[in-house]
Design a protein around this nucleic acid. Sequence first.
RNA 1: CGGGGUAUAGCGCAGUUGGUAGCGUGCCACGUUCGGGACGUGGAGGUCGGGCGUUCGAGUCGCCCUACCCCGACCA
Length: 491
Amino acid sequence: MGKFLTTREENYSQWYNELVLKADLAENSAVRGCMVIKPYGYAIWEKMRDALDAMFKDTGHVNAYFPLFIPKSFFSKEADHVEGFAKECAVVTHYRLRNKADGKGIEVDPDAKLEEELIVRPTSETIIWNTYKNWIQSYRDLPILINQWANVVRWEMRTRLFLRTAEFLWQEGHTAHATQQEAIDETVQMINVYAEFAEKFMAMPVIKGHKTENERFAGALDTYTIEAMMQDGKALQSGTSHFLGQNFAKAFDVKFTSKEGNLEYVWASSWGVSTRLIGALIMAHSDDNGLVLPPKLAPHQVVIVPIYKGNDQYDLMREAGNKLKTELKNAGISVLFDDRDTHKPGWKFAEYELKGFPIRLALGARDLENGTIELARRDTLEKKTYPMDNIVRVVKDLLDEIQNNIYQKALNFRNQKTYHADTWEEFVDIIENKGGFVYAHWDGTNETEDLIKEKTKATIRCIPVDNPIEDGKCILSGKPSKQRVLFARAY
RNA sequence: CGGGGUAUAGCGCAGUUGGUAGCGUGCCACGUUCGGGACGUGGAGGUCGGGCGUUCGAGUCGCCCUACCCCGACCA
């Protein structure tokens, strides 16, 4: 087998960068920090989007769309929120260009200065709550359960394809409720939806938990997160759900009359996942031969590659291949039949392996004679010949098996790289030398958290939900602690 | 924004003391091939990132830009 990729062991981060490019998922664009998502990468996003969208609808949400631009003044209304995003906002200041006086190119027309500058949304809480103000008068107007699929811009200093780009695609849910409990329930419900999506569709185990005050969303009272472990042992925050309390309602003066006739502020939640999930998907499962995609998110679950000599055989294979494709399709399996005569079978084998197609079927003259077909599964790279008459059943079962297998593999990996540390020396040794997740006691202060980060680059990924209560001492300060929190270096 | 690096064919790179640009791969044509990225023959493809300077002559030397990459501070 030819070697096209840097191996994970050689240089994990280079492996990732090369894989994204070579698997044709995305590339850097002419715009600093912004990526072009190529058709194959976008197809994965569409699968994610469709699955998530269905889950949102099932939990009573509807889609809507709010503007890309946000008046600057909206941003100053919620203090923590401003502070969190101010440093990475793109700002529109003018609305017109003109030809330069010397005729060489164009320039911003200084006469076309906007009266109020516009922020390109880094997230939409402000514009949405400004809008909700007009929609909400009574408890009868609640709850509002809206999601939007959109792009957002955060002017990052250092970017990496999918993991951190200046512009990215995501969904953001914004809900309004009459009671605190309802808003909290919503927040919890949505982090559960994300966890279920990660585990069932992405085949990626995640740890659900609360963010610490330091890591919390700007403007939230409580942030829930799902944290996944990548194959280099680092954590990747894969989705967040925020209980916003009445912060935005107060900032935008959104009140409603309750059943009892009292005027009250509305309770809020917001929650989102982004194209970063594609980065997570890649780093959770792929290997040194290329992508490994879970069948539930692979743009095509099966590829059929015909093998033939001469036109007569080509015609036979096309006929047989199309028939097989139809049978698989009728069984609900997504299939690509690559009958291009412009590429050799060997080339196609390598290509689809690199692109992570879960199952490859190779159909040749020998098979037609014997009534067989060769099947190769991507996750284990095993090849086996099956009788043709039962192949749809075999493929269907195998797709389920692959989905389970890669989940199990990721889970085993995470378990193997998850540690408990009781002393500072132990903690540092694990973070520095082993990598992975470390459960350790923490005294609950921002100062200690910052100090640990400074010393080890490890951060508190979350305080897991259903965390066992256990008396202990903070690994750094030695102060008493009631529970362990999850530490790791993170993306 | 600091520190380091790179810029030459679509992509990856070489280019010696300064003498007018080459390799691999990919691309096109034809033929032989086709069960793990085939082979042969022929062919196309370059304002050497931009500007100014030194020189008879600059991919090569000097200065100034610009873009990108890597390492830090910030982050989904």
